[in-house]
Amino acid sequence: MKEVIKPKVKTLAVGESFTTKEMNGKKDMFLPEHSSNIESVIFIHEGECILLINEKEVVMKPGDAFIIPPYIKHQFKGITDFKGIHFMPNEIAFEFFH
């Protein structure tokens, strides 16, 4: 059974239309599977992780970005401890699974 942990999340900036948050994950740990109602962008700036999306594993390293489509379940797993920046519209709503 995979171990799922709640990520440490820090708000970096909030504007009129967008919010930017930093998320932290741990080596060998999964972050909760979720989806959102609006497209957003994840940018990895420290460490490495795997983005599990659409039955694919996308390895992400520092400098990598991925556009997360709306209503698509996805999840992150740390290859190492990692930090990502999540750029999202303020009106985004998340649904978590499990």
Score class of each variant (00 low, 15 high):
1 M>E: 09
2 K>V: 12
3 E>F: 11
4 V>Q: 11
4 V>C: 07
4 V>I: 15
5 I>R: 11
7 P>I: 05
9 V>G: 02
11 T>N: 13
12 L>C: 11
14 V>H: 07
14 V>C: 06
17 S>D: 07
18 F>W: 10
19 T>Y: 01
19 T>M: 09
20 T>R: 07
21 K>G: 02
21 K>R: 12
21 K>E: 04
24 N>C: 06
24 N>F: 10
26 K>Q: 12
27 K>R: 14
29 M>G: 00
32 P>F: 03
36 S>H: 08
36 S>T: 09
37 N>F: 03
40 S>H: 15
40 S>M: 08
41 V>D: 01
42 I>T: 03
46 E>Y: 02
46 E>W: 06
49 C>Q: 01
49 C>G: 03
51 L>C: 07
52 L>R: 09
52 L>N: 09
54 N>C: 05
55 E>N: 15
57 E>C: 04
57 E>G: 02
59 V>Q: 08
60 M>V: 10
62 P>Q: 02
63 G>L: 10
63 G>S: 07
64 D>N: 14
64 D>W: 04
64 D>Q: 05
69 P>E: 03
72 I>A: 10
72 I>F: 09
73 K>P: 15
74 H>P: 06
75 Q>I: 03
76 F>T: 13
78 G>H: 03
80 T>D: 10
80 T>H: 08
80 T>G: 08
80 T>K: 04
83 K>A: 09
84 G>T: 06
87 F>S: 06
87 F>D: 01
89 P>W: 07
89 P>N: 14
89 P>F: 12
92 I>K: 04
95 E>Q: 14
96 F>V: 10
96 F>R: 14
97 F>G: 05
98 H>W: 11
